[in-house]
């Protein structure tokens, strides 16, 4: 009985924090979303579901949702596959491997602002790094990546693979290290090739890690903000106006707090639905994994 009380004392600070800064805000968002409130104005009339109904018929909102979806659909799997392969690569017992692990992690600790400045430069039309490389290879290319509607989103996606590699790689590395060596030995006895071992031992054993990486990456992909704010401002032609930026704009530039809250809540529903879906899909492979 006393231990119960102690346990609650131990979790109390974190729980209180969770309550105040995560759970209550969710309900506060919901509450605010029923009001029309321009934050500079004193009036705050109750408008029922008007913010939702007008958001749902707004093409720009759907455009933003679509942009976030295509950002996530490409950047998440791509980021995961690259990170997994790199993790396998750096799991080898080679001399100086820690140096490489460090190098591969470095882009992830780079500040978003510095990264954005750097990548704007990389993507410049004439003397940007990419176009310079291409012309060094004899291909004269002048694509203005960040101002070309066909390219801008993929430019951001490509950059996200670079910046997101570190944590994903480390998580996969941790997963790989945790796989019992006996499984590989058994596979080797059966004459399984390296590729085969990767396919039938490494991958299934990494399911929990993969789920974790998948969930966290998807959630953060849906909230991406800094690169868009710094690099494209949602342009060109709204092709990079992702939902995180769209809501920022509604709330902190147009100051329509009620409307932005409604959009926030819709985003939350979408994120929760995707997370639940991913969890379901991966559930079968999670035997033996203790979530709680």
């Amino acid at each position: 009985m006393k231990r119960q009380r102690t346990a609650w004392l131990f979790v109390a600070p974190a729980t209180l924090h969770l309550l105040v800064f995560a759970l209550i805000p969710i309900f506060a968002s919901l509450y605010l979303s029923f009001f029309k409130w321009h934050i500079l104005k004193p009036a705050r009339p109750f408008v029922g579901i008007h913010n939702y109904s007008s958001t749902l018929v707004e093409p720009k909102f759907w455009n933003a949702m679509w942009n976030s979806t295509r950002y996530a659909i490409v950047s998440v799997p791509l980021g995961i596959i690259v990170a997994l392969l790199v993790a396998v690569l750096v799991n080898q017992k080679l001399k100086g491997i820690t140096v490489f692990r460090t190098i591969f992690y470095t882009p992830s600790i780079t500040s978003g602002v510095a990264t954005a400045m750097l990548w704007i430069y990389i993507y410049l039309p004439e003397h940007g790094l990419i176009n310079s490389m291409l012309s060094a290879l004899g291909k004269n290319n002048k694509t203005d990546f960040l101002n070309d509607p066909a390219w801008a989103m993929w430019a951001l996606v490509f950059m996200s693979v670079w910046t997101g590699l570190g944590p994903r790689m480390v998580l996969f590395l941790a997963g790989i290290v945790g796989i019992p060596q006996t499984l590989y030995e058994a596979a080797e006895l059966d004459g399984a090739s390296m590729l085969r071992q990767f396919w039938s031992v490494t991958l299934p054993m990494l399911a929990p890690t993969t789920l974790f990486v998948l969930l966290t990456s998807t959630i953060s992909a849906f909230q991406v903000f800094t690169p868009v704010y710094m690099m494209t401002k949602g342009g060109p032609l709204d092709t990079t106006d992702v939902i995180g930026y769209h809501i920022y704009w509604e709330a902190w530039s147009k100051f329509n707090v009620g409307m932005a809250s409604a959009q926030t809540f819709l985003l939350l529903i979408v994120i929760a639905a995707i997370a639940a879906f991913q969890y379901r899909i991966m559930k079968n492979q999670l035997e033996g994994y203790s979530v709680a």
Binding site: A14, L18, V20, F21, A22, L23, I24, P25, I26, A28, S29, L32, L215, T216, I219, Q223, F225, I243, G244, I247, Y248, A251, V257, A260, S261, T264, L267, L268, I271, A272, A275, V291, A292
Partner: peptide
Amino acid sequence: SLFLLSMMFAGVVTQIPVYLM
């Protein structure tokens, strides 16, 4: 599980209420 779920709520979703708070 509430803690796990809350990882979803970060940033964009809680910005306005936390700001007002």
